[in-house]
Amino acid sequence: MSTEVAATGRAAAAVQQKPRKHGQIADGSTRRSRTIRYALLLLFLVVVLIPVYVVLVTSFKTSGDTTAASQWSLPKTWTLEPWSKAWDVLQPYMIRSLSLAIPAAIISSLIGSANGFVLARWRFPGANIVFAFILFGMFIPYQAVMLPLRTTFTELDITRGVPTLIIAHCIYGIPICTLIFRNYYATIVPNEIIESARVDGAGLIQTYVRIILPISISGFVVTLIWQFTSVWNDFLFALFLTQQNNGPVTLGLAALSGGQKVDYAASMAGALITSFPTLLVYILLGRWFIGGLMAGALKG
């Protein structure tokens, strides 16, 4: 279990690694079994991409073109109409989601880094209990806190919408960020460095700023990606804490594709538009995304 829990970096690196060549000892596979393996891999590739194909072609169709018979064919006439329609609806939501996901990701990463450092390398009596106390917060079904959370926000008079969501995501994002950083520092920072800094009389803040922060970049990339993606994709908090006029993009998409008369082409374009930022992050920074997944092995 601790393989992926203990070593974000190690586990992520292991996925990236090509298996070592086995030299003279064959890897046990014949040419035929290799061909079958490859054929299966390609088959699954197609299966996984089927929804992508149909979403893409549909998003370029005119509304008359989305009949049952033509559903899987290419558009008769290509049009950007659905995209502009979806964009018009989603644009304000997109802006809210951005202004929400970016600060929430940054703040919880910073807190997570400080916590992770202390829990990994500046331990105090009872640190394990505190760690378990924090970790459990990662698993709770948020329904169990949602009602009083709404009441708390109302009583504190915090503006419904982006501000409430930032606060909620920061707080409930602390456990996962703490875990990722704790594992990261436990893997990459040797205890001896901290010890010798202590011997030299460096305090916690000095050690953190001079030694830890400069080597934290890949840790930050992992938590930033992870938090950005989960905040962007969140629907539960959005539904409970905001409304259509102040909610994030998941709420916008639900509105665009809900209701009685659904414009399928626009819904599909909308699904693509809302997924675009996280997909972009995934494509550009996929390597770290996997790192986050490994650490997030604990999280849902």
Binding site: V15, K18, P19, D27, S29, R34, R37, Y38, L41, F44, L45, V48, L49, P51, V54, V55, T229, W232, N233, D234, F235, T250, L253, A254, S257, S267, M268, G270, A271, T274, S275, T278, L279, V281, Y282, G286, F289, I290, L293
Partner: peptide
């Protein structure tokens, strides 16, 4: 065991994870 183009397969199999459940639910 490693196959040619492994990273492509891996990325494609993994990509749905980056998408929100709402978007995938709509689809």
């Amino acid at each position: 065991k490693g196959v040619p183009g492994e990273s492509i397969f891996r990325s494609v199999y993994l990509f749905p994870m980056a998408i929100s459940m709402i978007a995938s639910g709509v689809v």
